[in-house]
């Protein structure tokens, strides 16, 4: 993927990111409104899960594309934050997994590792902004 420069990469990011967020919010509320947990058939449950995940994949794609296309310093910072966020979550997954294996804790919803990754990425981004950079 070619480098386009900071401005163009940012524009392309926003052009994809905000519609995806809007779709995500609409699907979340739509599904909540349509969905009856007791009577919903399996196909509808699967369709809701896919429809909610699709815009998230779109947002992740927008972020990755921006990282590849933006200027070199921003890219280096983003890559570092992505890697550090991933490392934090990998550690958390192992810790929670072993806590479960050794029967310290009960079942944990896997779902929360997704938002936790974005939180870890955000924290790592702040560290690269305010701390010593690349």
């Amino acid at each position: 993927m070619a480098t386009l420069g900071f401005r163009t990469a940012n524009k392309r990011y926003k052009r994809l990111f905000w519609p995806m967020i809007a779709i995500y919010v609409a699907v979340i509320f739509g599904a909540k409104w349509l969905f009856d947990e007791d009577t919903a058939p399996l196909w509808l449950r699967i369709a809701c899960a896919i429809a909610t995940t699709a815009p998230i994949i779109g947002c992740i794609w927008a972020g990755l594309r921006m990282t590849y296309e933006t200027d070199e310093y921003t890219r280096a910072r983003q890559m570092r934050a992505l890697a550090e966020g991933g490392a934090i979550i990998a550690c958390a997954v192992f810790l929670v997994g072993f806590l479960q294996i050794f029967e310290v804790i009960g079942p944990v919803d896997v779902f929360w590792f997704g938002p936790a990754y974005f939180a870890a990425f955000g924290l790592a981004s702040c560290r690269t902004i305010f701390g010593k950079t690349v």
Binding site: G5, F6, T8, T70, D71, E72, Y73, T74, R77, V134
Partner: peptide
Amino acid sequence: ADRLDVSRQSVNA
């Protein structure tokens, strides 16, 4: 940053 088409943070760094 605008003239170089990079972020302001890049120039600062």
